[in-house]
Amino acid sequence: MAILVLDILTTAAILFAVSAGLLIILGVMKLINFAHGAFLTVGGYMAYLNGAAGLSPWLSIPLAAGVGFLGGLVIERVIVRPLYDRPLDAILATWGLGIVIGQLITLGFGRGVQFAPNPISGTTELFGVDYSAYRLAVAVIAVLLVVALSALLKLTRFGLNARAVIMNERLARGLGIDSTRVRALTFGLGAALACAAGALITPLISVDPNMGLPWLVNSFMLVMVAGVSFPSLLVASLILGGAQVVVSTYANPILGGMTIVVAAALVLRISPKGFSRA
């Protein structure tokens, strides 16, 4: 039982960390970033490279975030900015970008599976059971991430501008907020979060050029259900991630793999606004 609870909590934390970058881009830019999966993959390969270079495994996360931020700024300028008025086209363009990134990675590293070193190996005892220490660490990091992102949005000038753009972009522009800059920074931040999340989860799984894809679909569903607030993303991760763990444990893992997708689709059919009203 304790293991089940811990599984649910850590799974929710991982899902939250993986989806946060997608959510912030959707919230501010009203844009679904289909390259999110590719960004996660890039983060995973950063962790792999970091390990191969013999650096401390903890370094891989800030390193991936930095690369993601810079890459995100460039991508925003070249591909995303011309598509602001065409949201469905932006989905396609970012999906195409994901293909390009995936193929570049395949060209560089081959199709094979790689592994990244784990910063904390072994297990730790909690509530009377031995549990993977790194999964627990990831959960702690995810909680810190919620706090940091909420603080960023609530306490900083950038956060105020971003919230203004979320609520009413026209008015925000009229008040002298440079919404283009806010969007660029947001995309950079979203990409940084995605890459960092990729680096974060890599020690738990392996790296291959398509590793981001299953995560893309799940985080996409979570974000749709959550609307545009971090607390409701956490709630969505807990409920749907919990459902996934329960189904995987008691039914079978393949059914578990589609739990989030099916549950999210049904939630949205019944209540098109998802959990965001709560």
Binding site: I32, L88, F220, M258, V262, L268
Partner: peptide
Amino acid sequence: GSLPLYASIITLALPIVLTQVIFS
């Protein structure tokens, strides 16, 4: 009242669910 984006999500979920069914 359904959004075009929502319809796209459903069409995206469909092949994912179907391939999982085939796998199982």
